[in-house]
Design a binder for these strands. Sequence first.
RNA 1: GCGGAUGUGGUGAAAUGGCAGACACGCAAGGUUUAGGACCUUGUGCCCGCAAGGGUGUGGAGGUUCGACUCCUCUCAUCCGCACCA
Length: 919
Amino acid sequence: EKFEAKYLPDKGLMKKNMKNNFNPNEIELKWQAIWDKEKIYQTDLGSAKRPFYNLMMFPYPSAEGLHIGGVRTFGGVDIYGRFKRMQGHDVFEPFGLDGFGIHAENYALKIGVNPVDNAKVTEKNFYRQIKEAGIGVDWSRTVETYKPEYYKWTQWLFVELFKAGLAYRKKSPVNFCPSCKTVLADEQVIDGKCERCSSIVEKKNLEQWFFRITDYAERLLTNIEGLDWTAKVKIAQRNWIGKKEGIEISYEIEGSDKKVTVFTTRPDTNFGATFIALAPEHSLVQEILNRVQDDKKAEIKNYVEATKKKTEIDRQSEGREKTGVFTGFYAINSLTGYKMPVWISDFVLIGFGTGAVVGVPGHDTRDFEFAQKFGLNIIRVVVGKDGDSSTITKIEQVQEEAGSMVNSDFLNGLDIHKATDKIMDYIEEKGYGRRKVTYHLRDWLISRQRYWGPPIPMVYCGNCAKKGISWFDTDEAKKQSKGMGISNDKSQISNKQKIGNSSEAMSGWFPVSDKELPVKLPYIEDFKPIGTGASPLGNHPEFYEVTCPECGAAAKRETDVSDTFLDSSWYFLRYLATDRDDMPFPSKALISENSENSASQKIRASDSQKSRISESSESSGIVNRLRFLPVTMYIGGAEHSVLHLLYARFITMFIKDLGLISFEEPFSKFFAHGLIIKDGAKMSKSKGNVVGPDLYIKKFGADTLRMYLHFLAPFSQEGDFRDSGIEGMNRFLKKVWKLFSDVQESKSEKAQISSEGLKMMHETIKNVTVEMENLRFNTSIAHLMSYYNFLAKQESVSRGEAEAYLKMLAPFAPYMTEELWQELQSQIEQKRKRANFASIHTQPWPEFDEQFIVSDTVTIPVQVNGKLRSTLSIASDQVGDKEAIEKMAKNDEKVAVFIKGKSIKKFIYIPGKVVNFVI
RNA sequence: GCGGAUGUGGUGAAAUGGCAGACACGCAAGGUUUAGGACCUUGUGCCCGCAAGGGUGUGGAGGUUCGACUCCUCUCAUCCGCACCA
């Protein structure tokens, strides 16, 4: 007994200590349940007053579960969302899974599970982990791209694109991995090799579905200017669209009625043009083969065949060494009459411009290399800054920069830009060519010969095809073309033109009618990619055997699925209408009955459906939901700069053109977060350093993990995750727990907040608020740590201080602060009132009061003898310290200032005004 | 090659043109009713010094400024995109 009395604390004390121990696992479970029950993260979309759509890029769940980088990303979004919620916004923070597509499928293949079954497991895991991490998601509105309720509308979107003439088929070379026996997306080809097995990727020529995103190139480009996005992403998109203004010039070929057309951005150098080079795939090559002698024919054929066999890898390993073959033909340079030999070379790409280039070896290094190797003439037409006007014989002399024209007849002496304008006018006038704009952006290849995606909702009828009939010949199509959605757009004519073109190429093709959507993806056992260029669904007659909607003959359903990026291009709209199976997203046009021309037609709802929509829309506040759009804040990885973000913009514009929404840019603000690395290396499965959150949450709790992940580095930058660091954060939270679980009624009543304390509090609030707004969470946390140190040193903490502190901490450590908040409230009210449950996460964000904030330095503009001498800064604690100021003045040896209290004794100090000082 | 970013202690990193290194990790010394861990206090850019103190310091070289991590010019290094784009 004596021993116990001496060495063990009494039971009451032990109990208190137990309570004083920060035990995250216990409180996290408790609050998860309460939050669920209280629905504190569910947003009433229909009646929200200050809508704030806080959106995180939904993940494609390809791996074992959420990894630590995901916790950082979604945690960061959540921190910001909670902050905004506390500022009084109606924050809508949904979550979902981009579970359809090649990533998820590859993972399923790897572990030998059907993607359908895998999706169920993944979904469960992801949602559990997100919940555990304390992300305040509205779980009543999730989106999973692989569920029929969702892909019904993805397919609907495809159909709409088709009907607008924006979806078409053409033959195109696709990436094919001979070892995996599957086609690959471009993004799965790394340096010409398969992402998974590193085999060299081949090209296969297959007929594919494309979207005419290039029709939107100009709009996609010009809109970038006005976006509040990370600059890097804007630049990347600009480059990807790659607008180039130039001119297409046609040259006569000697001894032929054919012409060769080239595209160039530098027509100013055309007086120096000395050869023409064609891509081996160029259409003229066949023409040439028909006309040349047998020995020449063999030579050309050999060359063309050889380049065809070359893989990307071969080309790269050969570097820039030029190869080519002379055709024996000459094209005439209309300006000079020069006979330009026509060559075939693989440095010319069929996919760019016209697939033919005009060689100006003096002013293009590639042309120079080519000309030098094959002994072609080199003419200088520009003299650059270096003043070198000699004959160009070395690659260093090749002048690609600005300069003035020489050897160019009427262009001589002109600056190259002026010369460009002048020669373009001239060429157009003479009819040699026409100005043209080209883009790097290509049409979006949408087909995938895979299983795990939304089946493309199209039907092909061989019978109709023979007659040259397609959907564009139906009554429905004709009715639609009168009231084309794409109306107030300049491209209307060209679009109609395209539909005209499409209707020929589209012979036999009919979209699945809206009533029949979704075209469900069947559960099949043989889901593995076949590798013959056919889709796994191609083995399933029960899937593809249908009758033609036009003639009733036997027809075949499309067995390809669409690209994952189509799924993710519109999901942000779906979140707002997950409770509706009668519309893809909230839209005024979809609910207004009297606008006949509008989109109620577009979704071609039956009359009964229509009335159902308008009846129920009022009660569910569909119109108010629109106030959440466009997305207020979008947060995601910069690696999606040009893919997802560009596609989403395109699709949004298209939906606007359908008349279904009133905006054309989906994301008002986009913030690119940094990636996470582990112990100095990128996390990857091959390195075996992929870290999951589960163990850390178990050991330290979600609060610690969340805070540590954002203390590492600013949200926008990459952070290095180290086990050693996380303990410091855990230590901090324990200290906070201890400090605030001790704040009691009796104490806090007495607690007087000192003026210094007041100042510190308001300064901290101000700093943290500003930093949160800029998503610089690491500095916010640092300020909270400093403020803790300050509070801990005080004799007691007042209620006001405790509340302000907990509120600021709440976005980072939602569980702990909630517990402490309830504890604090109950202590103060002396009893726990369950009925008055008020989560800290719905409390107002603390406000700072300027009067308590004194800046560290007083900056005074100084004028000496009437001349402005910039400013003089005086530390605020030196204001009134005559000695200190005199010392400063002495150091400067020019200025003397007399300040006492907050006013200058001799001269009145007015902030922002120039003050004259006596020397 | 083109485009973009980043360079600050042993580490992650802070600094509206105004005391460089906040905050944390790590390390060191000390304290504790002290197994270990935890916890508490102090110190910690580098160099000289027992100390007081002094010198030096934001990749490098210049420039603007009373004053530069911050703005400008050049340069070096690293990372990330795109790449035979006419």
